[in-house]
């Protein structure tokens, strides 16, 4: 009974993947038919890791993507747990309101977020710098300098995504039995000890899932770059998806673009596999 569904999955998932893999070994313009593709072996892969302008741009985009992903995950996961604890706690009212506010940022379309943030970040006219000025902090360069542009896009991403991951964290927190906290309290554990000994370990699976989703989302970042920075300044925000679009579609260099896409896919597979292996090893040690 599963055969038709599996067949469809194979057609719509594996065929494009195999096609991309095949194209990565060809010299091919995306504006021409597949019949014009010319086999060139691994030359595209050599080119994207060479010191030519193709290679330098690709490696810079790969590094930008890695920095963006690491910063996003490192900021989103702890924040989501912290906000999750605030939403989940029953000592003070307002948890549901906080959850609604946090999740609402996730529902705002990226085009609206991009428009608002591009104005918020404006170095001379932007409200953020004006507010910083009131408290004596000098104006920041935000999107206008290569040193700060990528970090500013990360902050935008964290602002938009943290609500979604907070909901995941709350879902994980509700799975932890109250009896465990009760027992720890009777044993004299303070809130900090209860967090490190009960909450965090039992949130492990939720955090693993959150990390995987956050990594995949971050690696696929495209809209804020396309809408706000166009990869600049000095390619500081040129992430891989945007760069692949630029090479594969704008310049029609389909073979090179496919080689970049295959490399991105391999990096993602290796990262996610390593994450699962790390989680399994940790679980095995604990067992």
């Amino acid at each position: 009974m599963l055969a038709p569904a599996t067949g469809l999955l194979a057609v719509f998932i594996f065929v494009p993947m195999l096609l991309t893999l095949w194209l990565s070994l060809q010299s091919w313009s995306t504006q021409t038919g597949f019949d014009t593709a010319r086999f060139i072996g691994v030359q595209n892969f050599i080119d994207i890791f060479s010191n030519s302008s193709i290679g330098r741009d690709f490696k810079a985009a790969l590094v930008n993507t890695l920095i963006y992903t690491v910063l996003s995950v490192v900021l989103i996961l702890p924040l989501s747990v912290a906000f999750g604890l605030l939403v989940h706690q029953k000592l003070a009212p307002g948890g549901i309101v906080l959850r609604t506010i946090l999740f609402s940022t996730y529902m705002v379309p990226m085009i609206a977020v991009a428009l608002v943030f591009s104005k918020l970040y404006s170095p001379t006219e932007g409200p953020i710098n004006q507010v910083l000025g009131w408290i004596g902090i000098p104006a920041q360069t935000w999107l206008s300098a290569p040193q700060t542009a990528l970090g500013s896009i990360v902050l935008l991403n964290v602002w938009q995504q943290v609500g979604y991951f907070t909901v995941l964290a709350v879902a994980g927190l509700t799975q932890i039995p109250d009896s465990l906290y009760e027992a720890a309290r009777i044993d004299g554990a303070n809130p900090v000890q209860r967090f490190w000994s009960i909450t965090l370990p039992l949130l492990g699976n939720t955090l693993l899932f959150s990390a995987v989703i956050a990594i995949i989302n971050s690696v696929q970042v495209f809209e804020p770059v396309a809408l706000i920075t166009q990869g600049g300044p000095v390619n500081a925000t040129n992430v891989l998806t945007y760069h692949i679009r630029r090479v594969g579609i704008e310049r029609a260099q389909g073979g090179l673009g496919s080689a970049m896409a295959v490399t991105l896919m391999l990096v993602l597979i290796v990262s996610i596999t390593a994450l699962f292996a790390f989680a399994r090893a940790r679980e095995a040690r604990r067992a």
Partner: peptide, 14 residues
């Protein structure tokens, strides 16, 4: 000042 020189996708901006 290059920090006053940024353009956006609509060729407007700072």
């Amino acid at each position: 000042d290059p920090q006053m020189a940024t353009a956006d996708a609509n060729t407007t901006g700072p």
